[in-house]
């Protein structure tokens, strides 16, 4: 009975799903297939080889400091870093005094109140403070950026497919839409070209991004460690720095993981041999010595006979 009802219900679902399927197939076959131009133009992120890549990845502290310098001089005026505290900078190699100086001299003040009047005021940052937002609120941010909202960069590397590769590709990916050719050699169609306030960048999922190219020329930042500041170098350095801001425990995690895996491999080997040891005789003779086991039953019968109790 259940089976009969089941078959009927099954036929019902199959028919309804079938209607959707057939309708879909007919639509697909009869409609003009328009290639999504934006889809065709979109580029996958390039692969850079960061020091932190892979299971044995480690931080390159020099690079992280350079990246911080790029963030500070190029990005910080529009993009916040509100999940990172100034004190965290000691993890990438700055001394305590340097951290205090960076915090104290930070261009943006931490919101506070005037201790005498109680009016809103700013104060210099302390190492314990998080990086203050460049704009008071979202409305102010949009007003200053042509209605676009510059996202906070603390987690940007984890919040975008492609991670650090995507960030570095994006920063170096701005192209002139008039002269750009995709890999089929096709030019950018008129309706895709960026309008006012937008810039063409094939690495961006929507092709046209509201951020103007932030790194425009070699030497835009002068590195304190003397590294040659090419556009590519600056983009990679800031992408590495942003990987650190998103995932500050990456190195600890990798180190702990290696230790844990080594221990677990060792424990698994022991567990395997213990298992084999316990089961060594299992297929030959393993008896549960319970009351109904034939051996015990036989023993009980024999005992009964001996004592002469009627069975």
């Amino acid at each position: 009975m259940v089976r009969l009802i089941g078959i009927l219900i099954g036929i019902g679902f199959v028919v309804v799903a079938g209607i959707s399927l057939i309708t879909g197939v007919i639509t697909h076959l009869t409609t003009e297939h328009v290639e999504d131009a934006a889809h065709a133009l979109h580029e996958e992120p390039r692969n850079y080889d960061f020091d932190h890549d892979g299971p044995f990845g480690r931080w390159n502290r020099q690079q992280l400091q350079r990246g911080f310098q790029v963030y500070k001089e190029v990005c910080a005026s529009c993009h916040g870093l509100n999940l990172v505290a100034f004190r965290n900078l000691s993890e990438i190699g700055y001394s305590e005094a340097a951290v205090r100086a960076i915090a104290d001299q930070w261009q943006i003040q931490v919101p506070s109140i005037n201790p005498d009047t109680g009016e809103p005021a700013g104060r210099n940052a302390l190492p314990a403070d998080r990086f203050p937002n460049p704009y008071a609120n979202e409305t102010a941010a949009r007003a200053a950026n042509n209605n676009a909202l510059p996202p906070d960069l603390s987690l940007i590397v984890k919040a975008r497919h492609g991670g650090a590769n995507y960030i570095a590709s994006l920063l170096t990916g701005y192209r002139d839409p008039a002269t750009y050719r995709d890999h089929h050699g096709q030019p950018v169609p008129e309706d895709i070209r960026p309008g006012q306030g937008l810039y063409f960048n094939p690495y961006f999922p929507n092709i046209n991004i509201a951020m103007p190219p932030p790194i425009t020329a070699d030497g835009q930042v002068t590195y304190t460690d003397g590294t040659n500041p090419t556009v590519d170098q600056m983009a990679q350095d800031v992408a590495a720095f942003l990987t650190w801001t998103a995932e500050p425990n990456l190195q600890t995690r990798h180190r702990a993981g290696t230790a844990v895996l080594i221990f677990l491999i060792f424990a698994s080997i022991l567990a395997w041999f213990a298992y084999k040891n316990v089961w060594a005789n299992a297929k030959r003779t393993v008896r549960v010595a319970g009351p109904l086991d034939p051996e015990n039953m036989a023993r009980r019968e024999a005992a009964k006979d001996e004592s002469g109790i009627a069975g």
Partner: peptide, 23 residues
């Protein structure tokens, strides 16, 4: 018998779990 067999299975499970969680 099955505590030993499960013990090995748990070790392998932990290995896979740790590999993903840490890496």
């Amino acid at each position: 018998f099955y505590t030993a067999k499960d013990g090995f299975a748990v070790a392998i499970f932990m290995l896979c779990f740790a590999a993903v969680t840490f890496f």
